[in-house]
Structures are given as structure tokens and as C-alpha cells.
Design a protein around this nucleic acid. Structure first.
Lengths: 338, 338
DNA sequence: TCTGGCACTCGCGACGTTTGAGTGCCAGCG
DNA sequence: CGCTGGCACTCAAACGTCGCGAGTGCCAGA
């Protein structure tokens, strides 16, 4: 459908536009790229590209800018993923190696991504549903009050207060703790419920209500708290573009403040490879003029969470994709180690 | 120094400017406020106020706007704290009562403050230094690997991995756990170090190195992790003012991304009452055109952390102060209950 | 001490002009 | 048939001009 050269012209337009942030004309194109043809020819090609909907001119007598569809073609067929330099890789590793706990890993990852891509970074905490249980702890705080602590293999800790219908002794707690752990440690969250269903039955009649309450709190934590957490950073980078789309900043900021929106955003990420969603491909209205570059990461071969960046559709896709992919790999390594 | 009427004029200027976001002239003032004098008189008063540095005109033949000094006078002597309506109070309570854990409380508080004041909200997690220990837990993950979990009275949980020089058995762990808790539970963090210093001595010689490592990790967590956490929200509200100071948004966003800056900001808050820092009173350059309204909150009579909002110097001080104070009170209540 | 009057200032928006980058089209050439 | 140079055309942005009007400072008089 589109000749090789026309694709080349599109690539040149995208690259120039991303670099200069200004509509690019035929003359400038031939000067900055060795296309081997004259401006007139390029103009013809541009006319075709515009008919096909890949580029668009803001007004007559102005240069062309790529449309969402144009970027899509660019990302899918014209651009690779630009690997990071050795120095950058080393910087990533050094920076992430200093992290002391999960919170720290996530916080550092966000900063890193934001700095590297100069865009807004989004990092999802390792998901609970896909995690496995490392340990369940029961602590007696008061006669009828127990704190339940859940520790995941990814280092995440959730705690809940449980008010029991009757006082629970240390022996009961120790008993329950032991049985619970022997059944659920190493299991995925989703597998836990059936494994503990019959637990109350093996206890003294008088203790069963308390045990049941504790168990249901645990299940609640597993299921309900599947609610994912997300960390955001680099929002100041949005202002780099506000001379271009100043009105657009607010909806973007608003969208980014909604955990739900962010989760949906990352939820649409494919499991393998870097996912790019461009402009209107994003369901949320406020993000119609932004692109999302995201990827899953995990301690093993399977993704336990996602991370990515949000930036204007006019972004350096190869570089951004490279940075996102590289950071995800290192984070995965770090998680696997701890 | 300043006559009663001149103060009244200043108050009127501040109120009008906050309302209209436009420089206010003498005529408009006399029309909107019943000052009982003519515009000419107001002009004279304005001239004096300007000489004293309380107001300032952007350019000749424009109205006046308050200076930082003017806002300061307004806050200190002319404005009270506007209490919230009953409906607002009820909304706060309802919203906060739904919180399930500490993270949730803080997250909800941030959203609440941001919505209520329509500004950027900042909430500090209950401080560790002022907290007391509720429980210390030691979990064996591998023969020579232990997870240390620290639970505070404010519900905050910190965990650390400890690699011991030698394998540690369950008995040892149970022993240490028991002794540790009997000594430190209920103590303030700052009081803990001397209480555990001699603990290794009471263990078998071969176990002492491991015990020492675990203890030092605990102390590290107590001291080093005094590093406070902060949650931010409502940054989209910044854009409400970008037609006024568009260039100023970026430094503000940048400043808000720096945990260190935020901590300093909240660190300067007095222990009692709502603190207001106006414009250049803020040390950080990026925040020179913003005001910070903050207050301490806590479960008892003593503040364990702070919360507040950041907004343009041109803000509704009485209303903001009222909202901040009210939210702090409710959060304190919630914390005391859990 | 306050007031009304008056001349002055100056930012702002409206309007007209110019400029130039960029386009579409066409005739000619390989 | 595809590429090229030439040419007329378009139109946003930049610039200059100008009148409006809100707002001021000052002054004489009550």
C-alpha cells in the first residue's frame, strides 16, 4: 500500500516533529534527511500520507504533524526499541541496588523512570493476586484483639486488626498460626480460600467463632485488598510541554490522581513485551493527548505487576520503550534477589 | 501605626483579590464594601499601605495586590479561622470512618483535604520517633535468614530482612522475641536503644553474633527509618491558577516531588495551632509564590505528624485554615480509636 | 481630614499590514 | 510513469498603531 519511501518520509516526519516540537515542512525534511528526492516529491508523498490519515496539518500553509495513526504505524513498523547505553544501565543498577525494602524499590524505580524518560512515571506495587504467601503472623494485642500480618514473597506486608467475639489465648493463636502457615505458605493468593475453609472445624467448639473471624479477615485481605497500589512520579515533567498543550495538563493531572484510572491503564498492558497506547487508544478522555508506554515486570518469568510512563503522544518512542524495558528488567532482578 | 480604617482597607483588598483574582482598584473597593468613605480617601490609604509595603501595584494605572507582608498582616490580625459547616464536618467524618488501615487513613485524608480546600494536600505519616512500639516480630524465612517486623502504636508496620552469620533456630527466635517484646513494647523509639544493649550477653555464646545482628537491624529501623513518609494529592488543583502564574507551576511541582523539601516544610510547623507560611517565608525557592497552611495532628494531645495544604499566596486563608484544622482533629480521633 | 475634580498613565484588545514558510498544481524531463 | 523546478496562493504569526478605560496622584476646597 505505502511505498518504502513514503514510510521513510513518515519516519522522518515523526523524528523531526519529536525533536523540534514544530510542524515539519517538505523543505526542512529534505534538508535534514538524505531522502534523495526533492521537496516537491516529498510534498506529493505527504499529500498521500495525509489522505491515508497518518499525518495532518494544523492549518493550511503549515507543516505536517503525525496523527495517532501515524505514530501507531511508526511504533509498529518503523521504529525499534533503542537499547540504553552502558553508562545508563550501570546507573540504573547502582541506583536500584541501594534500595532497602519494597517501598524503597518502588520509590526509586519511579524516580529513575521519571529521570530517564523525562516523563511521568507510574509503578504498580507487585500484585497481591499473583503473589504467593510467605508468612502469616497472628499477634495478640489484647485478650480479644489480634493483629493479622500477611507477608508476601515480593516483600509486601499487609496488616489488619481483628476483634474476636471471645478472648483468644496464646496457645490457640500458636496453633492456628502453625496450621495456617503449613497450609498456605508458598501458595498463590487465589488458591488460599479452599485450603482454609475447613480449618475452624478442627478447633474446640468455643474457639470456632474467633477462628472464623480471623480467617475471614485473612481472606478479605487477600481478596478485597487485591486493590493494587500505585506510585507516581515526575509529574513536573508535564510542564515541559505546556507551551504546546497548556489546557491539557489539568485533565492529565486529574486522571493521574485517580488510582482507578491508572490501574485500568496498566491493566490493559499485554503480558509480554512493551505495550504502547497512543492518544485516543487510551480509554480515559483526559489522556487522549498522551501516550502510555508500559511493560510488566516480575521476579520470575511471569509478570507480577506493571510499570511505565505517561507522556505526550509526541515522544521519543524508541528511547522511552528502551528505558521502560530496561528498568523493568532490573526491578525484576532486584525483586528476585530479596 | 495603621489606623483602623486602613486595616479595613487592607482586609477588603485581600478579600476582593482572593475572590476576583484581579488587582483591585479604589473605586471597586468602595462599591463592594461599605467603607463609608470615598474612593479618593481609599486611594490615600492605599498609597500609605503601599509605602509600608503591604500592597503593591503590578504597573502604574493598575489596581493593587497584597504583598506577602500584606497577607501576613491579614492572617495575623485581620482574619480568624472560619469553622466548617455542619455538613462539611459530617462529610469528613463519614469519609474518614471508612478507612480500613493506616495507608487508607492517610490516602483518604489527602483526598479530603485536596477536595475541601481545592489545593494541594500534604499529609505526613505518623512519625516513628514519637511513636511507641506495639510489637516486634521475628520470622524465620530460611535457616540463617530472619524477617524482622516492627509494628507501631499508630498502626505503621516496618519490615527488614536480616541475614544472620549463623543459622538460628525457632527456639532462639522465640526466646529473643519474648525478651525483646517484654522490654520494648509500649516504649518510645528513642528510649529503646539502652533497653536492649545488654540482650546478646544473656544468650549462648554461639548465638550472640546473630542476636547482635538482629538487634542492630532493629535499631537501624528505629533510627534510620525515622525517615518520614509523606503523601501528596490534589496537584491538579495547581492548574486552577496557571493563567496567573503559569511559569511558576513547574518549580512548585518539582519542589513537591522532593520528599526532603516537603519534610522540611512540615518540619517548620509549630506544635500548637495552625501554622501559615506565606510566599518568601518558605525557604525553598520554588515555593516562593505559594503559601503553606499546616498543623500537627495526633492521637493524643501531642502531635505525631503534620498535615497541610500548599496553594498560591492568594488563597482563602480563613477557610483553608478552618479545613486544615478540622481534618487534623478528625484524623487524630480516628488514630486514637484504632 | 475627607472629598470631588481633573489631568495623566499605561496595559489591553481591536484592527490592519507585512512576512514567510509551506502548500498544491502544472508543465517538462528522463 | 515518476520526479523535478517553478509559480501562484494561503494563512498563521509577528508587528505596529490606536483608542479605550480603569486606575492613579495631586490639589483646592469644605
Amino acid at each position: 500500500m505505502l511505498s518504502e519511501r513514503r514510510l521513510e518520509v513518515l519516519r522522518a516526519i515523526v523524528q523531526d516533529y519529536v525533536g523540534t516540537e514544530e510542524p515539519v515542512g517538505s523543505k526542512a525534511l529534505t534538508e535534514r534527511h538524505r531522502l534523495g528526492v526533492s521537496p516537491a516529491t516529498v510534498r506529493n508523498d505527504m499529500a498521500v500520507l495525509e489522505d491515508e490519515g497518518f499525518i495532518h496539518q494544523p492549518h493550511t500553509s503549515a507543516g505536517r504533524i503525525p496523527t495517532d495513526k501515524g505514530y501507531r504505524l511508526f511504533v509498529d513498523r518503523l521504529a525499534g526499541v533503542k537499547p540504553l547505553t552502558v553508562a545508563e544501565r550501570r546507573a540504573i543498577q547502582n541506583f536500584l541496588d541501594c534500595a532497602v525494602d519494597l517501598d524503597d524499590v518502588v520509590a526509586r524505580t519511579v524516580r529513575l523512570l521519571a529521570q530517564l524518560t523525562r516523563q511521568v512515571a507510574v509503578v504498580q506495587y507487585p500484585s497481591l493476586t499473583r503473589s504467593t504467601v510467605r508468612h502469616v503472623e497472628l499477634l495478640s494485642l489484647a485478650p480479644a484483639r489480634v493483629m493479622l500480618v500477611l507477608i508476601t514473597d515480593t516483600g509486601r506486608v499487609e496488616q489488619r486488626l481483628v476483634d474476636c467475639p471471645a478472648p483468644v489465648g496464646e496457645t490457640l493463636l500458636a496453633d492456628l498460626r502453625a496450621r495456617l502457615n503449613s497450609r498456605v505458605v508458598g501458595r498463590r493468593f487465589s488458591d488460599v480460600p479452599p485450603l482454609v475453609q475447613d480449618l475452624p472445624d478442627s478447633f474446640e467448639h468455643e474457639d470456632r467463632p474467633s477462628v472464623a473471624v480471623m480467617l475471614s479477615t485473612l481472606l478479605e485481605t487477600l481478596v478485597e485488598e487485591t486493590e493494587e497500589r500505585i506510585m507516581l512520579g515526575g509529574t513536573a515533567n508535564l510542564t515541559r510541554f505546556n507551551h504546546d498543550f497548556p489546557l491539557t495538563i489539568r485533565p492529565v493531572l486529574e486522571a493521574l490522581e485517580e488510582q482507578v484510572v491508572l490501574l485500568k491503564l496498566l491493566g490493559e498492558v499485554k503480558d509480554a513485551g512493551v505495550t504502547v497506547r497512543i492518544g485516543h487508544e487510551n480509554a480515559h478522555e483526559g489522556l487522549n493527548s498522551t501516550s502510555v508506554v508500559a511493560v510488566g515486570y516480575g521476579s520470575g518469568d511471569e509478570a507480577v505487576a506493571r510499570l511505565g510512563v505517561v507522556g505526550p503522544t509526541r515522544m521519543d518512542y524508541p528511547g522511552t520503550m528502551g528505558a521502560v524495558r530496561a528498568v523493568a528488567r532490573y526491578v525484576g532482578q532486584i525483586l528476585a534477589e530479596s
